[in-house]
Design a protein around this nucleic acid. Structure first.
Length: 564
RNA sequence: GUCACAGUGGCUCAGUUGGAUAGAGCAACGGUCUUCUAAACCGUAGGUCGUGAGUUCGAAUCUCACCUGUGACACCA
């Protein structure tokens, strides 16, 4: 079913010998619109060697090309345009999707090998903000894409459950908090202490010293400090899990930073043995000036560890435990230097697998052009956004489809889907300013648009439930109205590959929008349930579109309600 | 200051490996529900692709310089 090969072969027969198959492969392009054919070959590069104008060359070659197997081959100016045979092409594509179902587009690139994915990683005792949404949904989608390529993703929630921040929290709690307040509304009250701490520490720097001291106690195993810490953590996880459930995200491990607490000495020892550790200004560092980077701080002046120390331990642990082929980190791009350092230090330690680590970075969400900061108290709470979106979806359902069953479930799927899709539809590196109206929009290039397209298509299939189009031998569909949709269906496997190669869920989101739009155009102009010779093929097309739309949404972590 | 990333219609963004008149969505204006869900479809209007050079038959795409924005730059993560 390799239609491009058909074109390449036809060209090779008539092109001068010095042009290789590889060159032809590279030169062939897909025209922007179907009226210029399905493949095109530009003849400019032949002009010099043949001493002829490109459009003359194109005209010449068209005369020589064997047109068998094509609908037609023509030239437009300097281009040779190939039009595929719609009947056989559609027959092949539709059979492939109907047979493979949700497995359509699966690949075996990963051969079942392990790929740990460091994702979500919210900080204990802080509410989940829109910022955490990004790491969570990108990670979730990347994991699904990896799985489709037959890697074995291992989703790790690298909780921010260790560090000086807990010293601050303990200080704040002891000064202004009470057990009753925390139990009543854990995250919000803990957040209050944290924000107040930062405010007061501006005038009273001794508070920072106190906080550092408490964290040092945690590292030294102090009972009171650890008891408070465990309590904060437990309460936080309960709230996080409620949100993860709404997003449909699960994890294989919740090994946060604290998990590596007892693995830190080994890493520091190794660094020392390899002569990488140096003392500088009272702290222990790995010098990276040979790479124009500031040093990696391994131990603070007071002996406590830092972010990178824990990440070194985590990287090593993951290699030892999972024997990964690649190890992914879904973390904001503001930390790109951290990962550069992390990989470098591992490399200096002699670990070649440092090269298999990839930082999958994403852009910042800002509000009013400013970075979200828990410390300063300007956060956009994820749960609030989800609820706003779901409420709006419910309102729309009541207006547009008041008789719908299980309205609440559908509203949840549509509202949450809109938020998740919005986050994934643009390149992950792009930063965007938060705008509620835009995030919960249901029209145009949105998640609900894709969901709605799928729901309408399913509605047609319900009306044709008594027909066995799926078993029909002939699924050829020469209808030009359906052509773009059929070609898009055929592209799906290549889309998966590309999304996987560059770790970009947006590639799939964009594809889903394109497919939905193309199908909506077809739907608006053609009557599908007509009793004529093309009925089986049309129904197979509708069925294939629902299969691929649903799988696309699934890969993005968005639900596909059957009715809405 | 150094490094990284970005700059495409009023707004938000597409644009594999350079290719045919730069595409969508929102917002604006106009049209389409007695027929498979109008969260849809069709049309109109709107762009010197940050600026200036260079490479090329051909540049939004590659190179260089500059401008603007954002982020990172040792005891936070």
């Amino acid at each position: 079913m390799d239609s491009k090969k058909l074109v390449v072969d036809a060209l090779l027969k008539v092109l001068p010998d010095e042009i290789t198959e590889e060159q032809v492969q590279k030169l062939i392009e897909k025209p922007k619109t179907s009226d210029l054919g399905d493949y095109a070959f530009p003849t400019f590069i032949l002009a010099k060697s043949l001493h002829k104008a490109p459009n003359m060359i194109a005209e010449d070659l068209v005369g020589k090309i064997d047109q068998a197997g094509f609908e037609k081959v023509v030239n437009t100016g300097a281009y040779i345009n190939f039009f595929l045979d719609k009947s056989s092409f559609s027959n092949d594509v539709l059979h492939a999707v109907i047979n493979d179902k949700a497995n359509y587009g699966n690949q075996d690139e990963g051969k079942g090998r392990n790929v740990p994915i460091d994702m979500s990683s919210p900080n204990i005792a802080k509410p989940m903000s829109m910022g955490h949404l990004r790491s969570t949904v990108i990670g979730n989608s990347v994991a699904k894409i990896e799985k489709k390529l037959n890697y074995q993703p291992i989703k790790i929630n690298h909780l921010g459950d260790w560090g000086t921040q807990f010293g601050k929290l303990i200080v704040g709690y002891k000064m202004w908090g009470s057990e009753a307040d925390v139990e009543a509304d854990p995250i919000n009250n803990l957040l209050k202490y944290y924000v107040r701490f930062h405010k007061e520490a501006e005038d009273k720097p001794e508070l920072d010293d106190e906080a550092r001291a408490w964290f040092k106690k945690m590292e030294d195993g102090d009972e009171e400090a650890l008891k408070l810490w465990a309590w904060f953590k437990d309460l936080s996880l309960k709230e996080f899990n409620r949100i993860y459930a709404r997003l449909g995200v699960t994890f294989d491990h919740y090994t946060g930073e604290s998990f590596y607490n007892d693995k830190m000495d080994a890493i520091v020892d190794t660094l020392r043995e390899k002569g990488l550790l140096k003392e500088s200004r009272g702290a222990e560092i790995v010098d990276l000036s040979d790479h124009d980077l500031s040093p990696a701080l391994i131990r603070k002046t007071d002996g406590a560890t830092l972010y990178i120390t824990r990440d070194l331990a985590a990287a090593k642990y993951r290699k030892d435990t999972f024997d990964f082929v690649k190890s992914l980190y879904i973390v904001g791009s503001e930390q790109s230097e951290h990962f550069k350092k992390l990989k470098l230090v591992l490399k200096k330690m002699g670990y070649d697998w440092s090269d298999d680590i990839t930082h999958i970075e994403f852009g910042l969400i800002t509000t009013g052009g400013k970075k979200l900061s828990t410390r300063k108290g300007n956060v956009i709470l994820l749960e609030g956004v989800l609820q706003d979106a779901v409420d709006l979806a419910k309102k729309q359902i009541n207006e547009k489809n008041p008789d719908l069953k299980n309205k609440d479930d559908v509203a949840e799927a549509v509202g949450v889907g809109a938020v998740v899709f919005h986050d994934l539809k643009n390149e992950r590196r792009d930063s965007f300013d938060f705008n509620l109206e835009e995030v919960v929009r249901f029209e145009g290039e949105t998640g609900p648009y894709v969901q709605y397209t799928n729901a309408r298509a399913l509605s047609i299939l319900r009306k044709a439930a008594n027909l066995d189009y799926a078993d029909a031998d002939d699924l050829s569909l020469a209808d030009p109205e359906a052509w773009d949709t059929i070609k898009l269906l055929q592209e799906f496997p290549a889309v998966i590959k590309r999304a996987g190669r560059i770790y970009e869920p947006s590639v799939i989101a964009k594809y889903a929008l394109k497919l939905a739009k193309s199908f909506n155009q077809y739907y608006a102009h053609s009557k599908i349930l007509n009793e004529d010779a093309g009925l089986n093929a049309r129904l197979a097309l509708v069925k294939s579109v629902t299969t691929v739309l649903q799988e696309s949404l699934n890969l993005l972590g968005v639900k596909a309600p059957e009715e809405m």
